[in-house]
Simulated assay, not measured.
Amino acid sequence: MSPNDLIAALNLHALKGLAGKLLLPPASPLLLALLGLLLWRRRPRLARALVVLGLVSMWLLCLPAVGLGLARWLTTPPPPLTDAQVLALKGARSTAIVVLGAGRRDPAPEYGVPDLRPLTAERLRYGAWLARRTGLPLAFSGGLAPGVDPGETEAAAATRVAERDLGVRLRWREDRSRDTAENAQFTVALLSQAGITQIVLVTHDMHQRRALAGFERAMQRQGVRLALLPAPMAVPPAGPLAAGDFMPSVEGLQRSVYALHEWLGRLAGA
């Protein structure tokens, strides 16, 4: 049993979200520095080390070069689909494109209804593009993440956005999952019953390996076999680093946090 299975069995999903926030930047480096300040009088040598470690690690995590390095080292994203691979999928039998959710935005007052978070919207847009290029049916997986206020699920919001903004229809929607492991569990059951034998799995580059591992576990537990074709998106182009990659930025911190989040999630089996 993985740590994530134990958390699910004990219904501690809300604590999982809180623990994740504390373990990841910017909270973790700042907590180290704060601990150093609290120990300044009692243990000055240890206190100085903690403050320096917290501040230096925060600086490094904000560098785009470090974020790119962590992404490649910790998440090893597969390459994006080539034009030839996309063309080969055209009209493929018993094949579905599956888009994994990454959260909803509620409220979204400009629309008057819940909307999708940017990562989810990006994935859905790419999935819709693939569906138009290949003629394959489109599925979406996403319920309500732990700690999110009850209401409309990600899948319901994605259905509306797909039809309203992208002009595509979802053939299937899975709306019970709370994390990647449950995305895989419920989607495998849904699509295998529908006669699907191959999944084109759409998610972001750093999330792809964890998602593939989750689908492999789900298939093994359910005794079914589906072919998995990773369709990662937002894969950074290969090339030399620029001078700006060694200056701290919000983008650098976001990439570092995302890479560490995916690494921790994969270790926990989430």
Rank of each mutant, 00 (worst) to 15 (best):
A19N: 02
K21C: 03
L31D: 07
L31M: 15
L35E: 03
L39A: 12
W40S: 14
W40V: 14
W40P: 00
R41I: 06
R43N: 08
R48N: 05
L50F: 01
V51D: 04
G54N: 08
L55V: 15
S57T: 10
W59Q: 12
W59C: 13
L61A: 06
P64K: 05
P64G: 06
A65R: 06
V66D: 00
G67Y: 04
L68F: 14
L68S: 09
G69A: 11
W73N: 06
T75K: 00
T76N: 11
T76Q: 14
P80Q: 14
P80T: 11
D83H: 08
V86T: 15
L89S: 02
L89Y: 03
K90A: 12
G91S: 12
A92D: 14
S94E: 10
I97H: 12
V98D: 03
L100N: 08
G101E: 13
G103M: 04
A108H: 07
P109G: 09
G112D: 07
P118S: 04
L119C: 07
T120A: 13
A131C: 09
T134R: 14
L136I: 09
L138S: 02
A139G: 09
A139P: 00
L144R: 05
A145I: 01
P146W: 10
E152F: 09
E152M: 13
A156F: 09
A156G: 06
A158K: 01
A158P: 00
